[in-house]
């Protein structure tokens, strides 16, 4: 099988799996959880391009998620704009902010870049919480209209599940293509040795800024999908902890892996749901599981599972 045919088959399989799950799932709660997994996967996917491939950390990415959500909320609910018009504006707003923030901060590296983006994330959170007249302040923003395409109402659980996963599939395809291109190779080169990348003529600053803006745009797209799904947003969703959660999804799933982003997002979305039974101990168990995964699989879930598979196959062959 040629590689391109293999890829085509993989996409066909993914599409039919999503369609199958959508049809089989009858419990609205299950559909809701899977929709959130899709939104979180989108967040992790964009951040993974920045962190896993280009090696640049951002501890303020929830800000872009929030900018996407609040921009569309304000434009549609306050100003009555159609969501399909507010979508490009929400994405553009996040991209513009990322451009302005990225210009000075991406000159930093390592811990310092982490600190810089952290500060930005906190500022954004304070703006969401304190700008009462526009964002609704700490009590949140209500009445975000649902999405509809002509007569087709997308607000139902199943339709929204399809929408989110359809968007995610396209995003995966786009990320794959970026990674497997001149730009993607240059990004990985920056990750391995920024000095050498510069010496062979890669415009490292320009490229880092590009990927930062791109990942911010993906986060804003996720924010758009989130806002129109839940119809109510509040600043708490886009706080520092959310930024950390996004980083955790990427690291737990496995850096520089598209499947890793989805695995990490799934685990971090599902764990709190499964752990409700522990009530008071929920966060303790959650933390222990995170620690356990990182100790047993320091390269993340993707690499860890692949290693397990390969070991099992070797044993089988022997």
């Amino acid at each position: 099988m040629t590689p391109s045919l293999k890829k085509g088959v993989a996409y066909a399989l993914a599409c039919s799996a999503i369609a199958g799950i959508g049809l089989a799932a009858t419990n609205p709660y299950h559909l809701q959880v899977m929709t959130f997994i899709g939104i979180n996967s989108l967040l992790a996917l964009g951040l993974n391009l920045l962190m896993g491939y280009a090696g640049q950390i951002s501890l303020g990415h929830a800000a872009f998620y929030g900018i996407g959500a609040y921009t569309t909320a304000i434009l549609t609910a306050t100003y009555g704009l159609s969501p399909w018009l507010s979508l490009p504006m929400a994405v553009a707003a996040a991209a513009l902010v990322a451009f302005l923030v990225g210009m000075p901060t991406l000159k930093l590296s390592g811990y310092y870049l982490g600190m810089g983006t952290l500060g930005f994330g906190m500022i954004a959170f304070i703006v969401f919480r304190e700008w009462d007249g526009v964002t609704g302040g700490a009590s949140g923003f209500v009445g975000i209209p649902p999405l509809a395409v002509g007569p087709l109402n997308l607000s139902s659980g199943r339709n929204y599940f399809y929408l989110v996963w359809g968007v995610l599939l396209v995003a995966i395809l786009v990320c794959r293509r970026i990674i497997d291109s001149r730009t993607g190779r240059a990004l990985r080169a920056i990750h391995d040795s920024e000095n050498a990348a510069r010496a062979v003529g890669v415009g490292t600053m320009h490229l880092k800024l590009q990927v930062f803006v791109f990942s911010a745009a993906v986060a804003a797209l996720a924010g758009f999908l989130y806002a129109h799904y839940v119809s109510f947003i509040s600043p708490g969703t886009f706080d520092f902890l959310m930024s950390v959660r996004m980083v955790t999804m990427v690291v737990i799933g496995g850096m520089a892996s598209i499947w890793g982003a989805i695995l990490g997002a799934s685990l971090l979305t599902l764990l709190p749901e499964w752990l409700h039974a522990f009530s008071d101990l929920e966060m303790v168990v959650y933390g222990l599981i995170m620690m356990g995964v990182m100790i047993v699989m320091p390269q993340g879930l993707t690499r860890g599972i692949l290693d397990l598979y390969e070991r099992a196959r070797e044993r089988h062959e022997r």
Partner: peptide
């Protein structure tokens, strides 16, 4: 020597042709 160590041999050269 400063290679892009996690990348394949041929990818290193492909990045070398970036300009």
């Amino acid at each position: 020597v400063e290679l892009f160590e996690s990348m394949s041999v041929i990818e290193n050269i492909m990045v070398g042709r970036h300009v």
